[in-house]
Design a protein around this nucleic acid. Structure first.
Lengths: 170, 170
DNA sequence: GGGATATGTCAACAAACCTGACGTATTCGA
DNA sequence: TCGAATACGTCAGGTTTGTTGACATATCCC
């Protein structure tokens, strides 16, 4: 047990990383993500939605009252790209727009009940997969640290704020 | 230390998963993957390639002599979709096709030197990110278990075989 | 009042996926 | 040995989701 640190983590520490690429982790990450997004895909198909709809709905449901600008910064896509998909979610009654209180140029995004339910349904499915992956394991904190570490340093602070501040923006 | 098991892992154990969705892990996974694939994106742009090229080249470089069928099973896309991108990689000299020895219907895929180098360049970049994420952490095995657990059960055995058998198929 | 900001929109295009149908070469089993 | 199954390629057309560039509108702030 407690078998010191892996060669990779050690290499990172000493600064001499990159002898042998971490092929297994690279591929595991690919396979894990491939299947992770396949869960919601099945539900979305029932509604005639795609992955883009899921991403938007998820963040709107999690952070009610978000601005367009913040959503763009999270998704890293253009506003034209966002708008096409967002419009469908609004037309079909999953998301609503309300003018900002302090700044009336903003059109804050809110989930409808329908939207909240759909988002929750997909989150539950993904949670089931995560729970299964964690079953009987006590390394959850290590995983959290790892995932945070995978994020661009510049983005990391933003993500932390978003995670802790979620749902409080309401 | 050794602070028992998380609520989520516990819920998975006891079978009563899914009270509260694991929003933080869901989102961390999204952000981590978003940035993970952005590394190779920059390199690919130099060559006029996209993410699809990367995935194909990666697996061909890792498992020289792979069949089309196996690649399709890994990527979970249609052969028409694969072929368009694969053709470009062949035309530009990053991948070669050779008839199978035992079964001459097969057109086995091999990386060229050029292809191997490009694949390695991107793998190194992703490894650097992974090494940074693991720096000073001893939870690498927990992460590996987690990622494997995220994969569809049916696929898991295949992935295990692929990981351990990689590069031996040559 | 005028510039910056937040957002929307029109148009054209590209990457990367899809379905469906059909063709060819090769293998394998009755 | 012949016919079905398999491995792969390809033609055609469609969808989703991203892009760039340009321009319009409403609001805020100095």
């Amino acid at each position: 047990m407690s078998e010191a640190v892996s060669a990779l983590a050690l290499a990172a520490r000493t600064g001499q990383a990159g002898e042998e690429p971490a092929y297994d982790l690279i591929e595991l990450f690919f396979f894990a993500y491939r299947d992770f997004v396949s869960d919601p895909d099945r539900i979305l198909a029932e509604y005639g939605f795609g992955r883009a709809h899921h991403r938007i709905l998820h963040f709107v449901a999690r952070r009610p009252g978000m601005t367009i600008a913040e959503l763009l910064d999270i998704l890293k896509i253009t506003k034209q790209s966002l708008n096409r998909v967002l419009k469908e979610l609004i037309d079909k009654g999953y998301v609503e727009q309300r003018p900002g209180q302090s700044d009336r140029r903003q059109r804050l995004l809110w989930p409808t009940n329908q939207g909240r339910e759909l988002a929750l349904r997909m989150a539950r499915l993904q949670t089931r997969r995560i729970a299964r992956a964690l079953a009987g394991d006590d390394g959850e904190e290590a995983i959290r640290r790892f995932l945070i570490g995978m994020i661009d340093p510049v983005e990391r602070a933003k993500v932390r704020n978003r995670l802790s501040g979620a749902k409080l923006g309401a």
